[in-house]
Structure formats: structure tokens, C-alpha cells
Design a protein around this nucleic acid. Structure first.
Lengths: 206, 206
DNA sequence: GGCTATTTAGCACGACCGGTCGTTTTATTT
DNA sequence: AAATAAAACGACCGGTCGTGCTAAATAGCC
């Protein structure tokens, strides 16, 4: 078996995710990626059916990495609120910790594919929904552990966590603000403190 | 006097901001914009020194619109907290209210120009800083009016408002979530409520 | 070593990119 | 009506884009 092609594909994915992180979806062109993977444009293209296919594969590869450096390590924290706090801390700036040269590829793609339709956009939407569901599970875990009130609007908390993450991304990448981590942590702490007294964020709709 | 060229430039800017809103900076190519402004590529280009120049002009045009539909109307609200609440409400989804076909051009550019350097990026950074300063002024206004505590960390509040705005943008444009406005409003209310009791968000550093 | 399947490279294509050219149209002034 | 200046035009430059088609290299198996 020992097919050589798998090694090459691995190389492509590595270089591709790095490029995706650094320059966004629009920066991932066949030529640029081929150069970085040290192979010809057509040789690279032979591994994919289309550019959409490539982009989707790179997005999936990104989530595989994030699962490895964000979700898995968070599971070693105690269930409930500690685990929720762990995953948020690991989430912010995970791309840096994963050795990527730029920011979170999915966050960038979120804004890049605003509304232009197509399979790539759908992939991003799906990945985002899945991640949102995963976060919601962590929040529910904190509720089950009695650390957060039953009546909490889980989706609202996840929604606001996403906002903090996006602000962190922007602060890090665009403004290059050194205090981004502190700001994000402060915002998250306030969110949790506010969620803890069920007065403020209790569920209003079904 | 009565120069014809100004009308044309006006048409270019209008079509350009619309295109920028719909497809982002990368969607604004000379050819595509020329087609939408119903003129030739070269005729369009004659109005600018370079593509960077064009993009910068369109970004400025966007802020002019936002100033008209966000800042100005907010000034008619009572000074202090009401005015702060007004500008936040007007901020979220302003592009839709301004008749643009897509989302906030600056927010999109924020993520599109992650880190690739150049004059366009610098423009976005500057515009963002200016907007941030403007928001900070509104927050300080609420403090001056006695609606928010003196010890409040103003920048932190602005930072979190930005997060809510970005989450709102993503929810509207990507997920097409119908409840984006409600979510944003709830998050903002919680932020203000939390800021009102100075325990949580008091200034820690200088 | 030769056979065959896979993997890579080479090459060409049409479309579009940002940008420049000389020319034609349009409007203003005399 | 003639002269002049501004504005828009169409053609075209070198490049890069995504994507096919074909040939060369490289592997595993007998």
C-alpha cells in the first residue's frame, strides 16, 4: 500500500492551512499554494476536483487542528464551569498556539464569504453551526453541574462568546492590540458572572 | 462651473459602496465596478490614481454614509445613556437601513485585510480607531451624565460593544439568523447593566 | 527486469486582473 | 462657428487565475 500520494497530500494540507491562516481564502490560489508546497500547479491540482474542493478540504483540516489544540485539552479540565472556562481560554488565539502564521481561518472565512453562495460557504456555515453546538454543550454542562442557573438562555451565552472571540480576533490581527487576551478574558468573566445570576439572562423565548 | 465629472464620480461611489457592501474589498475590481456604474473600465479608472486609491475612497464614502445614518440621528437622543443606547441600536444593521445590498463594508474589510500591509489596510485601521474613539466619547458622556459609574473601564466597554457588533454582523450575513437584532440588544443590555454596577468592570490598569 | 497503476509535471486554454495607450465624444468658451 | 479642454471610450499590455488534456516519472507486483 504505502502510497506516496498521502505524504504529498499531507504536505499540501499543512502548507494550505498555513497559507489560509495567513492570507485568508482569497490568498489560497493554486499557484501560490503549489509554490509553498514545492510542487507544480497541476501536480497539486491533481489531488482535487476543483478549487472549491481544495478550499473545503483546507477548512476541514483547520477544524481538525483546532479540535486537537482546543477541544481535546479542554476535556482534561473538571466538568462544568471549569471546563467551559478552559475551552474559552484555549479557543482565543488557538491558531497562534497551533503554530499557524496567521489567525483563525474559519473566523476569517466567516467574513470573507459574507453572502456569496456556493459549497464553500455552506461548509463554513455548517462548521460554524457545529462549533456553536459544541460550545452550547459545554454551557449546558456547566448548568448540569449546578454552576450556572437552569433558566439560562444557552444560545445567548454562546452568541456572546462568539462576539468576544471575534473582537479578540480583530484586536489581535488588525489593531495588533497587546491587551487582546486580557480584554477577552475580562469580557468572558463578566459574561459568566452575569449569567450566574439568572435575573439578567434568563430565557425569554422557547 | 457645473462640471459633469462630479456626477459621474458620485455614481461611481454609489455603485462602489454597494458593491463593496455586497462582495467585500476583493469583489471591487475595476471591471466589475465599471460594469455596475455603466461605464468603461478606463473611463472609471481616470477618476483615480490607483486601485488602492479607489478602495480608500470607497471606504471613506462608506463612513460618510454611516455618519449620516448612525451618528447624526443618535445625536437627537437625550445625552448620556439614552444617546449611547441610541447609537448602538442605530449601529447594528446600519448598512441595511442605508439601503446597501450587503453588510457593513468596514467590518468586512477588518477581517479581509487581516495583516496584509499597505495604505488600504492603514485606512481601515485609522477609521476603526476613529470610530472606537467616537464610541468611547458616548460612553464617557453616559458617565458624565451620572448614568454609568466613574470608575468604569471605558475602553473595555467599547471593546465588548465591538464584539457584539461583529457577532451581529456574522449572525446576519452568514447564518442569516432572524434573531440577530434581539440577540445583540440583549447582549448590549446585559453589558450596560453589568457596567452600571461598578464592581464588575472597574478599571484595573491605568 | 518488465508491466501496470498511480502520481507528478508540462503545456495550453480562456477569462479576468490592474493599468496604459491613443482616440473619440462631449461640453465650454471665445 | 471654431477652438479648447474635459471626460469617456475601446484596444491592449503583461500577469495570474482556475482548469482541463497529455506525457513523463515513479512506485509496487510478478
Amino acid at each position: 500500500m504505502a502510497r506516496t500520494g498521502d505524504d504529498t497530500k499531507q504536505r499540501i494540507r499543512e502548507a494550505g492551512v498555513a497559507l489560509l491562516s495567513a492570507e485568508g481564502l482569497s490568498g489560497v490560489s493554486l499557484g501560490a499554494l503549489a509554490e509553498r508546497a514545492r510542487m507544480s500547479k497541476s501536480g497539486l491540482f491533481a489531488h482535487y476536483r476543483s478549487k472549491d474542493d481544495l478550499q473545503i478540504d483546507l477548512l476541514l483540516a483547520s477544524t481538525e487542528i483546532s479540535a486537537r489544540v482546543v477541544v481535546t485539552p479542554a476535556m482534561s479540565a473538571a466538568p462544568g464551569l471549569p471546563r467551559l472556562e478552559a475551552i474559552f481560554g484555549l479557543w482565543c488565539g488557538w491558531s497562534r498556539r497551533a503554530g499557524l502564521p496567521g489567525g483563525c481561518p474559519i473566523a476569517a472565512a466567516l467574513f470573507e464569504l459574507d453572502d456569496l453562495p456556493g459549497p464553500v460557504r455552506q461548509t463554513v456555515v455548517d462548521l460554524e453551526a457545529r462549533w456553536r453546538g459544541l460550545l452550547a454543550g459545554f454551557v449546558r454542562g456547566a448548568i448540569a453541574a449546578g454552576h450556572l442557573p437552569e433558566a439560562l438562555d444557552v444560545d445567548q451565552v454562546v452568541w456572546e462568546m462568539t462576539g468576544i472571540y471575534l473582537a479578540h480576533h480583530a484586536a489581535m490581527r488588525l489593531v495588533r492590540a497587546a491587551d487582546a487576551d486580557d480584554r477577552a478574558q475580562a469580557a468572558f468573566s463578566r459574561l459568566i458572572a452575569s449569567a450566574a445570576d439568572d435575573q439578567k439572562t434568563q430565557k425569554t423565548r422557547e
